[in-house]
């Protein structure tokens, strides 16, 4: 029994597979939620890091560089354990799902900061000069001239990271998040049949990442390459 659903081990592999599918789909839903939550955190935090890292003041830029390097160069698993167990020791107790989404988001924000930075730097210098000549403020230049042109350039790379995040979600099982792999393992532990649930996880994962890639590709194709249009 899991999520209030039970499995059928008495009528052959197919019946077993059909009976655990709804349970695995519940796990898949958790995987999807964790991916989207982590990706959302990374999207926002990554942009903030990218802006801070390019700040003119070294007192702003250096700490941002230090933090992102730390996030990139330590394993996700270590960060996860730290957030879940060490913080609990000092009295900060985060729910497992929140911890997982946060750890994924923070780690990937460090990678995505680099994507944003590359996208921002790829906007031709003349764009900043024109904005400067028109006396637009630095903020307005960033939000309405630079960023709309950087977004279409970074969509493919950001999409790849979304797929990577999805594939990293099983790591969250170590802090008891009931994502799809964890669910499959529990079923295996209790039925002594690992082949069916794990094979199904593989298949469902493939489906998930293929669909995600297709959506990213559609978004990429639907955006004008010159930038998010302003009329």
């Amino acid at each position: 029994m899991l999520f209030g659903l039970s499995w059928d081990t008495d009528h052959g592999e197919l019946a077993f597979a059909i009976s655990i599918l709804p349970i695995l789909l519940r796990g898949l839903l958790v995987t999807l939620e964790a991916s989207i939550a982590g990706f959302a955190v990374a999207l926002v935090l990554g942009l903030i890091f990218a802006i801070l890292k390019s700040a003119r003041s070294r007192w702003v830029a250096w700490p941002a560089v230090a933090v992102t390097e730390f996030c990139r160069d330590t394993p996700l698993l270590v960060q996860l354990f730290f957030l879940y167990y060490v913080l609990a020791d000092v009295g900060i107790i985060l729910p497992a799902f929140l911890t997982g989404a946060l750890a994924l988001g923070v780690q990937y924000s460090a990678y995505m900061a680099e994507v944003y930075r590359a996208g921002i730097e790829a906007v031709p210098k003349g764009q900043r000069e024109a904005a400067h000549a028109l006396d637009l403020t630095t903020t307005r230049t960033f939000t309405h001239v630079i960023l709309p042109q950087a977004v279409p350039r970074v969509i493919p790379a950001l999409g790849n990271y979304l797929v990577s995040i999805m594939k990293d979600v099983p790591v969250l099982s170590v802090v008891t998040v009931l994502e799809m792999l964890n669910v499959a393992k529990i079923i295996g532990d209790q039925t002594f049949d690992y082949i069916v649930p794990l094979s199904m996880v593989g298949g469902l994962y493939l489906l998930l990442t293929l669909v995600a890639s297709a959506i990213v590709r559609m978004i990429d194709l639907s955006l004008p390459k010159t930038g998010l249009p302003l009329r």
């Binding site: 024109a130 006396d135 637009l136 709309p148 930038g227 998010l228 302003l230 009329r231």
Partner: peptide
């Protein structure tokens, strides 16, 4: 150095407005 994501009208009206 026109803003490629803005219409001609927006290119011209952006700075006077902002």
């Amino acid at each position: 150095n026109l803003f490629p994501h803005m219409t001609a009208l927006r290119n011209v009206s952006e700075a006077p407005r902002q």
